[in-house]
Structure formats: structure tokens, C-alpha cells
Design a protein around this nucleic acid. Structure first.
Length: 583
DNA sequence: GCCGTTTTCGGCCCGACTGTTTTCAGTCG
């Protein structure tokens, strides 16, 4: 078992214990271990070999023993016993918004509900509102949550699918005879979720490649195996398809299997007008059998009179028309990103100290960063009150004087309270280099109220960035019911930057909203909202979402060198104060 | 289950909000 699998196992143990109502602190110990293991870069296997598991913070005798058990036997007895003692569907119920461990136990004890389907039926029949502590509103919330979940749950989050796909791709590329190999499909387009993984290989002989593919670890099922195409289902339910094509067709096949379908339909229609036809083998004259293009995507697009279109744009909107006129936007790239402006430390709910965060950021090539711990309004995150924030600012100034590290800006992720006021007074916010405002509670206020709440916060001249503007968690929690037009107009008017939160469960703003906000002239930041070192890995998902939103580097403030960023901020805040006076 | 210590047992984050209550339990972050 690798670190991820062990983290998952412990997480499941914690959830099962929660339903059973076991000691809350014991459960917390497991949850803490999950976070630690998830962000741990070294394999637990090697620590285990050295007998050093207990040196990890939060891992004592008990958990070290369970990790060892998992590594050696591939399972943990306590976990098996917990599973046996409860019906297996109960864990799914925890994913429904409004359902916590107590409610799960309640519906199980009283109504014998053990699956989401049964829960849905009970809610529809009005059987939930008769339970103690539940009423009509709880029932409605649960029903809404289930419906939202069912619309999205058959797809995999990019942050789950992409690393798996990359791992398989890396292995395939090692096989002798592989000329080229690429991930296609919605993963290549950087979509927030993927239905399956498509891998495309250019090679002559298929057999050794297929053998390597079929030897992928953690396979649950082999759906098909042939010389040109095989399909697997992994233990987590993710389907992976591998296709092998001749080198001369690789570009055409890559284009074809990257999609989106709507994009390909438009492309083929365009080809027909030019007396050409496009398929996965190449571009052909209608009356000919010899391909005029096919080995590279560039050739395929060029043969149709188009510049190459970045995969993130291939959604069947107006990208083909833009490509024809060579007017595609120059999309932001990962290398353009100079700063990480949204990060947490151990002062609130982060896992790294200030110096550790700065070192990690430097290692990853950032030119400067900001520390933006939570404000006091957010109890759980150990948010900072004004005094602690001031102390942290001193600490940061001291750190910067030492030189050698990456420069650190002071900041805060200040909570937007229910009434739109911020957690800190203006005179304190004015002293910070970066002020990020965010909604964390009461996400289901009615549209008018929540829109006003956020817009009021944007009018504060010291707010620089609005974090995770919709509050959604993909497949788990619907977005806030915001009047987006009003919000985007307000962001443009006040100059407050809209965050593209790069965490793969958020990707918030999402691509479509980015395109809309850009029409209003809004600016954006791409940030990982880093709590642990591994969170920086999410940057790629944020960049790709920004690219799908058609952003160029000039639209993204993280692309500014530090001096220019500070200049921008000054100007933005001055403008904010002018707006305030004239209002 | 972990941790630290006044070293072997007691503390471990907790406040806001909601919906259900009529004084609070459960969920969320």
C-alpha cells in the first residue's frame, strides 16, 4: 500500500468510528494522521523499514503499528472489523450535505436506511421529517444534496484522475518501441472532471505495450484486451483506455480522441466545405485515399487552414473561427506564475511553519509569496485575532530581513461575515500587503442576500482578492446562489481580483465564469490555497482552468513581478478609497 | 489515539449557524 491508500484507509476508519459514536479525540487522531500522511512526500514504506514511523508528528505507537500492518499485510484488522459491524453503504451517506455521523446513525437505526437511494426514497416519501431533530427543511436540504451529487458523481475529479493517468503514461513510455504517448480526452483539455482516461500511443508492435498496460497495479476488471485497444477498470472505478495507432496517424488520432465532441463536429463540417474529410487516421481529400496530414496535430489543423488550437479551448465554442483568423488568446502558462498569494501556516490551519512554507515555495520556483492565514471568525481554522496577526506581521518582517529566502508578503484570508462586514477593522487591513476576503459560512443564504453580502465586502478599499467566489466543492456542495453578473460588475468596478482557487475539489471560479467575468474587465489570481506542501501541486489544475477561461498572463496578477504587484496593489487601494468617497 | 509532563493521566479548538427546539443537538468549517 502506498501513502495515499493508507491515508484513505485511516480516513475510512475515522468515518466508521464517527458513525459508531466512538471517542471524538480518538477519531481526531486518525483524521490528523490522514492529513499528515497525505502531505508526506517520503514513502511510509521507507520510514517503516528504518523503524522511524513514530518520529512523525501525530503518529504514536498505535498508529505506527497500524501503518506497519497495512504495509505488510495490505489490510488492517480493526478496519475489517469496523466494516463488518456496519452496512457498507453508510459511508456514502456521510457525503450527503446535511448528513453527519449522528444523522446517518439515526436514519439507519430508525428507518434501516443504508444507501443513498434508500435515503432519497425516504426523503421523497416525507419519512425523514418525522424523525427526532429533523423537519421539513432538513429533508429538503438532504434531497437537494442528493440530486446535486447524482448529477456529478459518475465522473472523477481531475486531481484524482490526472496523477493516475500520468503514472500509467510514464510506465508505457518506458516500453521499447513506443514512439510517442499522450493522454487525450477531457483530461488533456483540462476539464475539472473526467469520465475516463484515454491514453494514445504511436508504435508498430502493440503486444509488449499492451502487456505492460494490463500489468497496471490495482486493476479491478479488464473490459477488453486486443492488439490495438484495451480497457481496464481500476479499483477506484476509473476506466482507462489505451489505443495504439501507427506513427503516421498519431496527430490525427490525438486530435480525434482529445475532442470535445462538439469541437470535432465543427471541425469536420469545416473540412467538408473544403472538400476534405477528417477522421482519426488523418486528413484526406474527399476523393483520395492518401492522407495530406496526420502525423502531428499541427499538420492536421494547418491542412484545414487553422493554427493549432490548445486543447483547453477545444469545446466547440468559437475557437475554430478564432483560429482561422489567428486570433486565439495567448494563454497563460504555468511558467508565467511568479507568486503564490494564498497560503496558510501553522498559525491557522496550515501544516507548515512560515519558514517551511517559504522554503517549499522557493524550491518550487516562486519569486515571492504571501501568508494569508484565516481571521478569527473561522473558529476551526484557529483563525488569528488582531493581536496574533500583528505578531505574525512582525515575524514576517523579521524573516524577510534575514534574506536568502523567498520574500514573504503579509496578509490575511479575512472572513466575510453573514452581514458582509469583515473580521478585521480597516486600519489593520491597511497594514497588510495582501487582503483576501472569503465566505466560509452560511453559504445557502438567498441570492439577494448573499450577493449583497459579497458585494459589500468588495467595496472595502483594502480587499484585494475574493477567494473561492462560488464556494462550491465539485460533486459535493453546490455553489452559492450568487447573482454573477452583479458580482462580476462589482469586481470590475472595485478592481478586486477574482481568485481561481486551484484546489481540484474547488476550481473556483470555474472556466465558464472566468470567461463571463473577463467580459466585465475583471482581473484574476491563480492560487493553490496551500495548507500542506503537496497542495502546491494543484497549481497546474488552476492554470488549466484559467486557460479554459481564455486568460492570458496579463489577466493574472500572479504573473506580475513583486515590484509591479505592489504598485498594482497601491493603485487598486487608492482607487477603492476614491470610490468609497464618491459613493 | 497522541502528547507532554508538575511522568502515566488528563487535555486534546470551538464558534456560528440552522433547524429544531422551548434550551439544544448536529453540522460545518
Amino acid at each position: 500500500m502506498d501513502n495515499k491508500e493508507i491515508a484513505r484507509l485511516f480516513s475510512e476508519i475515522a468515518e466508521l468510528m464517527e458513525i459508531k459514536g466512538e471517542n471524538a479525540f480518538k477519531i481526531r487522531a486518525y483524521q490528523k494522521a490522514v492529513r499528515t500522511i497525505e502531505s508526506f512526500t517520503e514513502p511510509l514504506q521507507s520510514l517503516h523499514a528504518e523503524g522511524k514511523l513514530e518520529s512523525i508528528e501525530g503518529i504514536g505507537k498505535g498508529l505506527a503499528g497500524k501503518i506497519a500492518e497495512a504495509l505488510e499485510k495490505g489490510s488492517v484488522q480493526q478496519h475489517q472489523e469496523l466494516l463488518k459491524s456496519l452496512p457498507e453503504g453508510l459511508l456514502d451517506l456521510l457525503d450527503v450535505p446535511g448528513m453527519g455521523p449522528k444523522k446517518v446513525k439515526l436514519v439507519y437505526d430508525e428507518l434501516n436506511i443504508t444507501s443513498i437511494d434508500e435515503l432519497k426514497r425516504a426523503a421523497e416519501a416525507g419519512a425523514l421529517q418525522s424523525l427526532p431533530g429533523m423537519g421539513k427543511k432538513s429533508e429538503e436540504k438532504i434531497l437537494k444534496g442528493i440530486e446535486h451529487r447524482q448529477q456529478t458523481s459518475s465522473r472523477f475529479l481531475i486531481g484524482v484522475a490526472a496523477p493516475i493517468a500520468q503514472e500509467i503514461l510514464d510506465r508505457i513510455r518506458q516500453v521499447k518501441g513506443v514512439k510517442q504517448a499522450q493522454i487525450a480526452g477531457s483530461l488533456r483539455r483540462g476539464k475539472e472532471t473526467a469520465g475516463d482516461v484515454d491514453i494514445l500511443v504511436a508504435a508498430k508492435a502493440g503486444k509488449p505495450i499492451m502487456e505492460e498496460f494490463l500489468a497496471t497495479p490495482a486493476v479491478r476488471d479488464v473490459l477488453a484486451k486486443g492488439d490495438a485497444k484495451s480497457s481496464l477498470v481500476l479499483n477506484n472505478g476509473l476506466q482507462v483506455d489505451l489505443r495504439i495507432v501507427p506513427e503516421a496517424s498519431f496527430g490525427a488520432a490525438l486530435q480525434y480522441f482529445t475532442g470535445a465532441k462538439e469541437h470535432n463536429v465543427k471541425l469536420r463540417a469545416r473540412a467538408v466545405k473544403q472538400k476534405l474529410k477528417v477522421n482519426e487516421y488523418g486528413v484526406f481529400k474527399v476523393d483520395g485515399d492518401d492522407p495530406i496530414a496526420g502525423s502531428t496535430e499541427e499538420d492536421v489543423y494547418a491542412s484545414l487552414g487553422l493554427v493549432w488550437i490548445p486543447p483547453e479551448l477545444r469545446e466547440g465554442l468559437d475557437e475554430i473561427e478564432l483560429a482561422e483568423k489567428d486570433q486565439l488568446p495567448a494563454l497563460v502558462e504555468r511558467q508565467d506564475i511568479r507568486s503564490a498569494l494564498h497560503n496558510h501556516t501553522t498559525a491557522s490551519d496550515g501544516l507548515m511553519r512560515l519558514d517551511e512554507l517559504a522554503a517549499e515555495a522557493k524550491r518550487r520556483g516562486y519569486e515571492y509569496i504571501a501568508v494569508t492565514d484565516h481571521s478569527g471568525g473561522l473558529g476551526v481554522a484557529g483563525g488569528l485575532n488582531a493581536d496574533r496577526l500583528k505578531k505574525q506581521m512582525d515575524e514576517i518582517h523579521g524573516f524577510n530581513e534575514k534574506k536568502g529566502g523567498v520574500p514573504v508578503l503579509t496578509g490575511s484570508e479575512v472572513d466575510i461575515r453573514v452581514d458582509g462586514r469583515l473580521d478585521f477593522p480597516d486600519d489593520l487591513l491597511a497594514q497588510l500587503d495582501v487582503v483576501i476576503a472569503a465566505v466560509h459560512g452560511s453559504l445557502d443564504q438567498p441570492r439577494e442576500k448573499i450577493t449583497k453580502r459579497i458585494c459589500d465586502a468588495l467595496e472595502n478599499p483594502y480587499v484585494d482578492i475574493l477567494s473561492h467566489p462560488s464556494g462550491r466543492l465539485i460533486g459535493r456542495r453546490p455553489p452559492m446562489d450568487v447573482d454573477w453578473e452583479a458580482l462580476f460588475a462589482k469586481a470590475a468596478e472595485t478592481g478586486v481580483v477574482l481568485e481561481i482557487n486551484a484546489h481540484y475539489m474547488r476550481l473556483d471560479l470555474k472556466d465558464q465564469h472566468i470567461r463571463e467575468a473577463m467580459k466585465y474587465g475583471a482581473l484574476f489570481s491563480i492560487d493553490t490555497d496551500t495548507h500542506a506542501a503537496a497542495d502546491f501541486d494543484n497549481l497546474d489544475y488552476g492554470v488549466r482552468t484559467a486557460r479554459r477561461g481564455r486568460l492570458a498572463a496579463k489577466d493574472v496578477i500572479n504573473c506580475l513581478p513583486m515590484k509591479d504587484f505592489m504598485r498594482w496593489k497601491k493603485k487598486h487601494r487608492r482607487q477603492g478609497r476614491v470610490n468609497e468617497k464618491t459613493r
